[in-house]
């Protein structure tokens, strides 16, 4: 499943989960995350994220 990984610290954004505690509703597509949004953990800009398709620990492969 696609996730978006911060290349500054490794924080991951999951479209299904969103980041409601940071004002981004569950289901918000990455393309719809504002361009001026930054990583909540380290401040890296949205452009400094990379789309990855890496299985999640414990999830069926």
């Amino acid at each position: 499943m696609k996730k978006y990984l911060c290349l500054g610290c490794g924080f991951s954004y999951d479209e299904a989960m969103g980041l409601p505690e940071h004002g981004i509703a569950p289901g918000t597509r990455w393309a719809d995350v504002p361009d001026d949004w930054v990583c909540p953990d380290c401040g890296t800009p949205k452009s400094g994220f990379e789309m990855v398709e890496i299985p999640t620990y414990g999830a069926p492969r």
């Binding site: 890496i54 299985p55 620990y57």
Partner: peptide, 9 residues
């Protein structure tokens, strides 16, 4: 490096 699995302990 990127991990083989995300969110591992």
């Amino acid at each position: 490096v990127l991990p083989g699995r995300l969110m591992a302990p």
